[in-house]
Design a protein around this nucleic acid. Structure first.
Length: 273
DNA sequence: GTAAACCTGGCA
DNA sequence: TGCCAGGTTTAC
């Protein structure tokens, strides 16, 4: 579920509901997500006011009034949903973290696979972000020359490189496939063998696809929901992801898939060179 | 580099 | 029953 457009969608839907709210109580119903959850989390957020809702790469950020940030990662299957006073419901299976707010609303983290993450840290010193690459939509930082500069440093294929959070933050398996379709490059293509113009084309396609996906509020393949429990709409616009054997939207050839770094990558054998 | 690990659920 | 799934880390 949660690549950049999905996390951005969650952040935008939660911002008006969480900004200015204080955390009144925290309930942990699982002992560990990707890392152990302990009572220090409750101590860190108790009584704190949420000043701002943000995002960095695939991480959702709740900036608190003491300079710390409540950092969330959705893993593969996590959803962070706000329930208003009156629509609160009994805890469901896989509701792992429940925060009660000062207006009677609740913030509930549900994650069947428990690959998610919830912790409090300072952004400036948090190791999760120290090696993270630029934001994909930051034109000053993520551009053709920047991507081309990685050609010296890696002989990897372009699909791997795009999904490397140290190169650019926010891309995962769905959008990497979509971007490479739009710019006509095979996912197996080595970055080192790409021209400067090809690097430019990848960046342009990335901005286009990600902007479009944010406009459509992300992709719900099976279970993605935004901060108010509403699915995204971009799954209807996917060009190649998950469409093995179906017709390429451009030329009609059958979409193929290939395993790259243990992940399925989808491409059109005719349109992508 | 590549595989396996962490987890559950859905589908063939 | 086995395989696959939006991610990341850790171990050969």
């Amino acid at each position: 579920m949660p690549e950049l457009p999905e996390v951005e969608t969650i952040a935008r839907s939660l911002a008006p509901l969480l900004t200015g709210r204080r955390v009144r109580r925290l309930t942990l119903r699982a002992t560990r997500l990707r890392k152990p959850l302990d009572s220090s989390l409750a101590e860190a957020v108790y009584g704190r006011r949420i000043e701002e809702v943000g995002r960095r790469g695939k991480y959702l950020l709740l900036h608190l009034d003491d300079g710390f940030t409540w950092i969330w990662h959705m893993g593969m299957s996590g959803c962070l949903v706000h329930q208003r006073l009156g629509e609160t419901q009994a805890a469901r299976k896989h509701d792992h973290v429940i925060a009660e707010l000062d207006d009677g609303g609740r913030l509930v983290f549900n994650d069947p696979r428990r690959f998610g993450l919830s912790l409090v840290d300072r952004m400036a010193t948090c190791g999760l972000f120290s090696a993270m690459g630029p934001e994909l939509l930051d034109v000053q930082a993520f551009n053709g020359p920047y991507l081309a500069s990685w050609r010296r440093r890696t002989g990897r294929n372009i699909k791997d490189v795009l999904m490397d959070q140290r190169v650019v933050a926010g891309l995962g398996n769905i959008y990497a496939s979509e971007i490479l379709f739009v710019c006509g490059l095979r996912p197996t293509r080595r970055l080192a063998r790409m021209s400067r113009a090809a690097c430019d084309a990848v960046v342009v396609a990335a901005r286009e696809i990600i902007s479009e996906a944010i406009e459509h509020r992300g992709t719900s393949v099976s279970d993605f929901l935004d901060g108010i429990g509403k699915p995204g709409g971009y799954q209807w616009r996917l060009r190649v992801y998950g469409r093995r054997g179906q017709a390429c939207p451009r030329c009609g050839s059958a979409i193929k898939s290939v395993l790259i770094s243990q992940r399925s990558s989808f491409y059109c054998p005719r349109c992508q060179k």
